[in-house]
């Protein structure tokens, strides 16, 4: 399916469009200079459509510290659903989770180049003091 957009979309329009298409494979939208947002291509392979409105990633991005090449530790990355959505906006992500099956699903679809995945609980994670910009507890506390 090819969708040609003749006008910039707002966030609500985009969510509606994604839903109308249903099991969408990829949507790449770019607003003009005044629109100031660009959503890159994403791929859904699961049947369930999860947060097409992108409320979650928008809320997260608004809270990351305003530093260049932000270094993030994500605790409870699971299958990388959220990691994929925000990782392109930060410098590096160290994504940890003790769930072997979830991490296997993450690796199956390819891990973004700036993301390192480790299979372990947080209490086994050893990092230098004052070495990261943000620690995200991702549905993990």
């Amino acid at each position: 399916m090819v969708v040609v957009l003749t006008a910039p979309l707002g966030a609500d329009d985009l969510a509606q469009l994604k839903f109308l298409i249903g099991r969408w494979q990829a949507i790449d939208t770019a607003a003009g200079e005044s629109g100031s947002f660009k959503r890159s291509v994403e791929r859904y392979t699961a049947r369930m459509i999860i947060d097409p409105e992108e409320h979650e990633v928008d809320a997260l991005l608004a809270r990351l510290p305003p530093v260049d090449r932000c270094a993030v530790v994500e605790v409870g990355c699971g299958d990388g659903r959220l990691t994929r959505r925000y990782s392109r906006h930060v410098g590096t992500v160290l994504a940890v989770d003790p769930d072997q099956a979830a991490l296997a699903a993450f690796r199956k679809d390819g891990i973004p180049g700036n993301v390192e995945v480790r299979e372990m609980p947080i209490d086994r994670l050893a990092l230098p003091d004052e070495s990261v910009d943000a620690v995200l507890f991702s549905w993990a506390l």
Binding site: V75, I122, D123, L125, V132, D133, V135, F137, L141
Partner: peptide, 25 residues
């Protein structure tokens, strides 16, 4: 969980390092 938050606190850079807690309300 308290221990996890305490460990994470030590990893944060000054001055803008932060913990972000995302979970069901």
């Amino acid at each position: 969980m308290v221990d996890a938050l305490s460990r994470a606190r030590r990893w944060l850079k000054a001055p803008s390092g932060r913990i972000i807690d995302l979970r069901p309300a």
